[in-house]
Design a protein around this nucleic acid. Sequence first.
DNA 1: GGAATAGTGTCTTTTAGACATTATCAA
DNA 2: TTGATAATGTCTAAAAGACACTATTCC
Lengths: 263, 263
Amino acid sequence: VTGVTATQPRRSGDDARASARDGHEGDFLDAYDPRAFPPVAVTVDIVTLTVRQGRLNVLLVRRGTHPFRGYWALPGGFVTAGEDLDAAAARELTEEAGIPATSAHLEQLRSYGAPDRDPRMRVVSVAYLALAPDLPRPVAGTDADDARFFDVEDLQEAQPSPLAFDHHQILTEAVERARSKLEYTNLATTFLEEPFTIADLRRIYEAIWGHPLHPANFRRKVLSTPGLVAPTGQERATGRGWADLYRRGTTTTLHPALLRTRN
Amino acid sequence: VTGVTATQPRRSGDDARASARDGHEGDFLDAYDPRAFPPVAVTVDIVTLTVRQGRLNVLLVRRGTHPFRGYWALPGGFVTAGEDLDAAAARELTEEAGIPATSAHLEQLRSYGAPDRDPRMRVVSVAYLALAPDLPRPVAGTDADDARFFDVEDLQEAQPSPLAFDHHQILTEAVERARSKLEYTNLATTFLEEPFTIADLRRIYEAIWGHPLHPANFRRKVLSTPGLVAPTGQERATGRGWADLYRRGTTTTLHPALLRTRN
DNA sequence: GGAATAGTGTCTTTTAGACATTATCAA
DNA sequence: TTGATAATGTCTAAAAGACACTATTCC
């Protein structure tokens, strides 16, 4: 006996017009009627971006089950009962990606709900974008072959895509969001451990925007943008001279913006 | 007999580790097991913005049922079986807001899924932003007292909020998205019927950004931004002189951006 | 005439972008 | 020495922002 059937929301009598309008259906009250809504599962999928050796990377896990067995997928899972979407994303980031939620920036991207995106049933996935420094990761319960970082550019050029479901599209939109957010926020600093040099920060921008930046002009722009970075007064030997060290600034929204231009 | 219970996703045996990782649970195959996922309803809620008499307005409908009976809410409703999220939003825009989907810009905002946001059951709402010109609306099946436009600024200042659920927060984030999008896209033109004058366009920016703009500088910026507007060669009597008429340009992303500054 | 608006022109300040220069250290 | 990088300085072009001015029309 299956209590859930793929019917349209049920409406009845006097309440039909009101419920068509109020957006939350009126024919159940404090309890819910399981026949009143189509069966849907809600999951979160995490696009975890980091910069390794000057290249933008994304964390993927290998699928061991049908469908897309053997394909690579974004880590994710069910939103459990009583759990907020953000909390589910933070939990999956820790459990599946092995990244402590405190060391990463996590924000909602958008939701994906094409009816046929999962062949088993209707699944609406809330995609999240996580930005993390290139930490030595203590991946809990997964060996290196089942969860690892991939070069984003390589992934996007691969034909056919090795990604399961619509994760190729989600990845593309996540990367575009990250590129855009570097312009007007200080999120580039979340890819770095403190303290860092201006050149470290520049290499983050170069990796994510995908083209080289003019070192001198970049330095001037960063230092003239209030609140992006704060000097520590210390220096680090870089191999070729000494570089000043900085910490993250306190401003999250940049004025003026660091526009994504050629230089 | 209720087939849906509020349990965590079920896992079994060998598949437990894999399904904990692959994000889409592996213990059902081509069919779904209704006990394998928590019961959730997915709805869309539409923030329909328009500019009337120089003020930013939003379309709300009055709730006739529990909970929040008598409160005002964003139009919306269930995502039906087999229906894409975007399609559900377009359908609700037409059915509930009485706005033909062709005359509005519609884009996904983000999803809201706090466990207690609807007291009846778990509801994840995918919020959409709709931008429309101030059309004479043929609202189907709703009389003027049940669906009408509200001044956004008045709504946001009202204490306590007359909005149901978490719709106050959704509205706030929608308005901020609209403000931001006017900077780097030509979406301001979707608030206008063609043809329009530069002053018409300026009044849209002023209404949404909430402060006056310098007419001469605004004109120069708009005309020097490639692809924002296209001249029609015609003029319109405005009461004080004659104003050149324009159509929407073909470029959706503006270079340089029309930055949201004081002037 | 006075007030309001459309449209054009001009000037200053700020920012972007290109490029030169010096210092330091590795190979 | 040569090459690479950090840091600073300088110059030009583009854009933002402030303001002056003319023309038109309503009151």
